[in-house]
Design a protein around this nucleic acid. Structure first.
Lengths: 190, 190
DNA sequence: CTCACAACGCTAGCGCAGCTAGACTCCGGG
DNA sequence: CCCGGAGTCTAGCTGCGCTAGCGTTGTGAG
């Protein structure tokens, strides 16, 4: 059965290749440039091969988004454990989140604008999403006081997310994002 | 020259008809159902007519979004002037904003996800966008204290917007939006 | 009243998208 | 050596945004 194993291994490699190429293509030319034809060309297979791995184009984007959540969770955890004290950890995590979104705008877009199928509250929530939320909750919950920690985390996360998306779409004054983040940090500590 | 005037009037009517139909179609079947062919069919003209009114499909969506901002601004202003006292006004405006987004999800989508060309910080910011922001600023600025009122408004608005989008995409626990809004109101008053 | 003309809307079609049916190739097992 | 099936490809479907170019029709001058 070694033959079959080799095939499955190669298949898994190709699966990952599709995800990598999709992400790379999106990062260099934007999501609108990610078409099944171009994707097929880059992986050096024909279009139908994509559909033997993923249900459709959306599923590919979703896979990229999932990787994004895993990366984000790791960055947040690094930032949190790297800081000493509640206040420092809060600022570090917020900064790490914002930096991640700024450094990977296309990835962030996949995570929050493109892949709307990925739910959080549902029982089928993928692990990376839980991990990312948990990393946020770990730092926000301390500030909740007598309020429900999870609700507080949701609100704080929303503020952060809103700041990033509105800023990215040109809805806020450019070059003031630093001030806004600082104000958010201060407000959360009140 | 009455003939020409009549033509311009009819042309303006058709212009508005396109916007109305686009919005109506989006509200009943989603934005993905809004295609130039279907739009043309509904207004009972051929596709090229659309392009004599708008530069492209995006411009049509943008026109719908602009109407959305005007409506939102009106709702917020109503809520603010209808309440007495800073605290009541704050809660009323936040609720009005959230209600607007809930009642018109498709419109809100056009305003913030589809029409990313509409900028705020720029000098060419359309009037309805300014009006909407001003309505928010009118109630948030009072709470700024010693902080920059505009920055505070931007942060508060971001929190509100983030709450709505994350909730809509299933990223927050359903049926808790009320608690989250209440927590936001309280936090802003701290 | 006639008629040239310009404005206007239409038909037809281009290139590209996501996706799939069906033919072909090639390799492992008997 | 050949059969069977897994795996891949070619070709093509429908529908998208958008546009070139051809009527048609109503206007205003003569």
């Amino acid at each position: 059965m070694s033959v079959q194993e080799r095939r499955e291994r190669q298949r898994a490699q190709r699966h990952q290749l599709i995800i990598d190429v999709a992400r790379q293509l999106a990062e260099s030319e934007g999501w609108e440039a990610v078409t099944t034809r171009r994707l097929a060309e880059r992986i050096e297979y024909s279009q139908p091969v994509l559909y033997s791995h993923f249900k459709g184009k959306d599923a590919i984007v979703e896979a990229v988004a999932l990787e994004g959540f895993a990366e984000l969770a790791a960055r947040l955890e690094d930032a949190r454990t790297g800081a000493t004290g509640t206040h420092a950890a809060l600022a570090a995590v917020l900064r790490a989140y914002a930096d991640f979104a700024t450094a990977n705008p296309v990835l962030y877009d996949a995570m929050f604008a493109r892949a709307t199928t990925l739910a959080f509250g549902a029982p089928n929530t993928p692990e990376p999403l839980r991990a990312a939320f948990a990393a946020l909750a770990a730092v926000f919950a301390d500030l909740a006081g007598d309020r429900d920690p999870e609700t507080f985390t949701e609100v704080a996360w929303s503020a952060l997310h809103g700041l990033i998306t509105l800023n990215r779409d040109g809805r806020l004054r450019p070059d003031r994002q630093g001030q806004r983040l600082a104000l958010l940090v201060a407000q959360l500590q009140r």
